[in-house]
Design a protein around this nucleic acid. Structure first.
Length: 339
DNA sequence: GGCTCTCGAGTCTAGTCTGT
DNA sequence: ACAGACTAGACTCGAGAGCC
């Protein structure tokens, strides 16, 4: 099963290929005589066709309240406008094991598919060529980069202040079945999640469990099964606390027992950190460049998803946040760093 | 005493405007 | 096309009041 980000990345790459391969004929048609026509799709067409078949409805159903990355938006809009899916299904129902069609039989079905495929590809190329589209892309990339730079700067500022950090990665959400069933559910569940998280973050400021919490990064998402949920990275002063797995469990318990109640549910990434090949959580020393790089990647992933698919929040609220960048350290209290 | 809630100032996100 | 400047509104965080 492919990750969501991989599927969306694939679609964006496909749109780039459609733009770059402007001379691709999509199909080669050879008249073999006696009313038989041989139709061979190009690799680009095969790729487009399988993407539409495998990703169109699953992704649209999975993200009822989202706006996709402009490239992915152009893809979905063009596919829907030109009704390509219908033609793909009709062609598939012919159960062809070869590429030969009878001009007085099944060829019109294939012709209709070719027409719609060309219309779809033309629409994608026309849309992505416009000045308005390029401005949207430029601004989206700029914002994404700005957020990423800010976040890296933020993590660096934490390591400048604390020689080691306990990094806790936890998802705060709800029991299965909390997904959106109808339109009326959207504002209700959205505000419920927002209010719970606000309550949680507010309480981290005085609750003794969070006494040594020094920073956080969060992103707000919607999943088809989990409903609204938060991805959270917490930074604790590594010289004051230890045992990240237990700490993560206590934070999770706090979310369930004190904030949400029996409907709450968490995913403790620290408890499963051994299963991650590039582990950037747990105890990280400022001089451990490898772990810090993995941490940066884990943090960047939160922004990456947002880059592909942005949630349309009813209240215009944020979907990403972090603590404030710490000012540079003044004075030279403590043992100087050796590395 | 420990925790939650509220307030206000400052910071950050997300987006637009404008000049080069 | 690109990047700096600017803005509105959401969010963070320190401080203090109030509750149990």
């Amino acid at each position: 099963m492919k990750k969501l980000s991989e599927k969306l990345f694939e679609i964006e790459q496909l749109v780039h290929a459609i733009i770059e391969q402007g001379n691709d004929p999509l199909y080669t048609v050879i008249d073999q005589g006696k009313g038989v026509v041989r139709v061979t799709p190009t690799p680009l067409t095969k790729r487009l066709s399988s993407t539409v078949k495998n990703y169109l409805y699953p992704l649209l159903n999975q993200f009822p309240i989202h706006e996709f990355n402009p490239y992915i938006n152009a893809f979905f809009r063009s596919v829907i406008n030109t009704n390509v899916m219908e033609s793909i299904e009709q062609q598939a129902s012919l159960n062809k094991r070869h590429n030969r069609y009878q001009t007085d039989g099944d060829y019109p079905v294939m012709q209709e598919l070719m027409t719609r495929m060309h219309a779809c590809v033309d629409q994608i190329r026309a849309e992505t060529k416009s000045a308005a589209f390029r401005t949207i892309i430029y601004n989206a990339n700029r914002l994404s980069k700005k957020n990423q730079d800010g976040m890296m700067h933020y993590i660096d500022s934490l390591f400048d202040h604390y020689s080691k950090l306990i990094v806790v990665r936890i998802d705060l959400g709800y029991q299965k079945g909390n997904h959106i069933i109808n339109q009326a559910d959207i504002p209700k569940k959205y505000w419920q999640a927002r209010s719970h998280f606000k309550h949680f973050l507010n309480n981290t400021r005085r609750n003794s469990l969070f006494e040594h919490l020094v920073g956080n990064i969060w992103s707000f998402e919607y999943g088809p099964e989990k409903g609204f949920h938060y991805h959270l990275i917490l930074f604790f002063d590594g010289s004051k606390v230890r045992q990240d797995v237990i700490l993560a469990r206590m934070v999770g318990d706090y979310w369930v027992k004190c904030i949400v109640g029996s409907q709450g549910r968490i995913w403790n990434c620290n408890a499963n950190k051994d299963t991650y090949p590039d582990c950037g959580i747990g105890l990280i020393h400022f001089s451990d460049t490898e772990k810090r790089e993995h941490l940066n990647q884990a943090a960047a992933y939160l922004i990456k998803i947002d880059h592909y698919v942005r949630m349309l929040t009813p209240g215009d609220g944020r979907t990403f946040g972090r603590g404030e960048i710490l000012p540079p350290k003044t004075g030279n209290i403590g043992r100087p760093r050796s590395k």
